[in-house]
Design a protein around this nucleic acid. Sequence first.
DNA 1: CTCTTAAGATACGCAACGTGTTTAAGGAGT
DNA 2: ACTCCTTAAACACGTTGCGTATCTTAAGAG
Lengths: 206, 206
Amino acid sequence: MTRGRTRRRGQELEQAILDAVWAELDEVGYTGLTIEGVAARAGTSKPVIYRRWSNRAALVLAAWTSRQPSTNEPIDTGALRSDLLALFTRIAQRTDQIMNEMIAGVMGEAFRDPAVVALLQERLRSTPLAEAITRMVHRAAERGELPDVPLPGRAARLPLDLIRSEAILQRAALTEQTVVELVDEIYLPLLRGLAVSPPEAAAPAV
Amino acid sequence: MTRGRTRRRGQELEQAILDAVWAELDEVGYTGLTIEGVAARAGTSKPVIYRRWSNRAALVLAAWTSRQPSTNEPIDTGALRSDLLALFTRIAQRTDQIMNEMIAGVMGEAFRDPAVVALLQERLRSTPLAEAITRMVHRAAERGELPDVPLPGRAARLPLDLIRSEAILQRAALTEQTVVELVDEIYLPLLRGLAVSPPEAAAPAV
DNA sequence: CTCTTAAGATACGCAACGTGTTTAAGGAGT
DNA sequence: ACTCCTTAAACACGTTGCGTATCTTAAGAG
């Protein structure tokens, strides 16, 4: 099989394996992905893979990392609502079908393997989203669209949670309509509510 | 192994299998759950199980259904915040570790099997939660805690989504502290925001 | 007491697991 | 240019769980 080809090493081989992982995820999904299948597609063998990654979840997470997009250009459309729509849309586009299936699959294994939990949480949380949102809201306050209000961490993380919940837990399509609803029915109202009465004031008012 | 025992049939046998499924989920998790393991624990054999359920996901979902709690007594503590805390807490308690692991596991398979998607969505969506929330908010409005406001469907579903996102996607512990934060930092502010300016008015204001 | 049904046991071929062992290719150093 | 050392590739192995087929025998119905 490899008679005519030159033998790959190091980065080249590794990338070929990770590309094969992505292709397999696309074709047979996470559940159907096997180490043997990846090895066959990459034109290599199982031991080569096992030498680098200890299990399926680690392999898949590595493939995910190698695909991490770099486009993080700041959003500034001049108005809060359109800023939010742009941000939600960007998140939605980055969370496509393959990605979601992978997250769901890895999540299933994460419950048993602490190492996988750590890898997964790192991947899920390492996002500059919170800062982007905070800046966005601050700009809106400067324009007078909204009283300035410190955003609780949970509120800053919410956009990503909402989209993941929709795509992974509900298994619903992420249409433009969905994004508009999330912004108009949930996130904008939440920001307005935080503005009229911050959570610190609410707590003792039982 | 079964020499001294009487041979079970029908409902009795079925329930024994479903109980075994739950015990296996508890011990080895969804990923580690095997039909053979369930058969061994239930003191029966694989064909008996395959005669009733076509795959692991269907078997596990059946076990889930058989464990569905019946306590749906209405919540009415006299104040919106404590009502919400009680509701969130109830949801959190019903979504324990085993349950979450099972949902995550089945979700992973759902991406490949349309039948499983249907079963899972039916299970996830058949909840009287939306009505409970709506009544709760309406009562708060009658008490004058909040202007009365129609709750968009998404907002009514949000408590469950928030808790599932926390427990399954974030894999964080559902402490009382977490519940308090979800209510004070997200849900109450959202309700207030919806009250001050309903989504219909917001949309054209781009 | 007989007859039908289905539980229970066993065995099968298949696929993928994860791990050895052996061979040979690539790159580095003299 | 030759040798050495790393390591990719190939192959084989035992194990496990899959889903199915076959057989027996217990349970329950008439």
